[in-house]
Design a protein around this nucleic acid. Structure first.
Lengths: 195, 195
DNA sequence: GTCTATACCAAGATAGAC
DNA sequence: GTCTATCTTGGTATAGAC
């Protein structure tokens, strides 16, 4: 540990970061070791990368594992900060914004899960447990509403990517504002303070 | 045309159908001509397929074009039948079910659009125009609600695929029923007949 | 219009010098 | 721990016989 000072042992990290980017963008088969080497600054085309990882598969798994850990930590951090908000409406707004941010944060992992889910099965469980979605055998009406909110935000995210602009030109703020109105109209348990 | 009777000229069609399946499942790079040949019943590994299509790219485009045309026809057919329903609640239920069916119908195209959108840019426009989503510069509150419903259904579909079961165990019926309740509570313009 | 054979190349991976 | 060189495989695509 103390031996390596100037030459940061960061190469491995940079490989993992670049790898996840390329995997998410190009898929497993579309990703070439050469491209990753190029991005990291290693001589492209040489197998220099194999001094760090034994195979392309192993690289994918390591990259996914690292990404899950990082994003998860970020999310928990951000959620803790949410607890401070007292105003119900504001709190709800921030909750949904947070959910959307979480989804975006997980974007690279989502795309990987959609495409390479079979290649890294643990990925599925890791993601859903990280998002802490309540899964019951017999979901209540409340669970269904929560599922709708999540699905709406997830769909909004993906459709926006597909359209290359905010989905149907509905801005994030308008989307969340309207979604809150819908959800709260069905669950008037917690009346908003101001209004 | 009249020359070819017994040996159905269907080979081309079967290639297109198989190709879209493989492209959607494995992505462009993950798809091999060999695999498609195998599925169609041609000798695998030989370039027999190239008697029908000049290149892998051309095959992808042809397969997408055909799929768009087929699904679109299906959808228009199904929509026409919807007009007959008079009861508002029933009509709405069928509308949403229809929307979900449309989304599922387009599943292979969606996945392709997500992954190979850049390779077949026309695909994007074709899909969204087929779904007839209203896109305004300044979406109204009503547009936002429509967007939420579509996003929710789309998200439900994709998340269900990701989880490999109905999303969070919320069944399709429960999801749609709850979604209708939400949407209609915000738009009490059209009161449900029975209730 | 389907097969055999094959050219060609990109990419994963390894050995060994420095 | 990075480079040079190289092996090997698998996949696109073509030529030509039947």
């Amino acid at each position: 540990m103390a031996t390596n000072q100037t030459t940061q042992p960061k190469t491995r990290e940079r490989i993992l970061e670049a790898a996840l980017d390329v995997f998410a963008d190009e898929g497993f088969n579309g990703t070439t070791i050469t491209e990753i080497e190029r991005r990291v600054g290693l001589a492209a085309g040489t197998g220099s990368l194999y001094r760090h990882f034994p195979s392309k598969e192993a690289l994918l798994r390591a990259a996914v594992e690292r990404e899950v850990k990082l994003r998860r930590a970020e999310m928990e951090q951000a959620r803790a900060e949410l607890q401070a908000i007292s105003d119900p409406l504001e709190r709800r707004t921030q909750e949904f914004k947070q959910m959307l941010r979480d989804i975006r944060r997980f974007d690279r992992l989502y795309r990987l899960m959609l495409n390479e889910g079979d290649r890294v099965p643990e990925l599925r469980e890791a993601i859903w447990s990280a998002l802490q979605t309540p899964v019951r055998e017999q979901p209540t009406e409340q669970d269904a509403i929560t599922a709708i909110a999540m699905a709406a935000l997830g769909g909004y995210h993906l459709f926006s990517i597909m359209q290359g602009r905010p989905f149907n030109n509905v801005s994030q703020d308008q989307f969340i504002r309207t979604l809150i109105a819908l959800v709260d109209s069905a669950r008037p348990t917690e009346p908003t303070s101001s209004q």
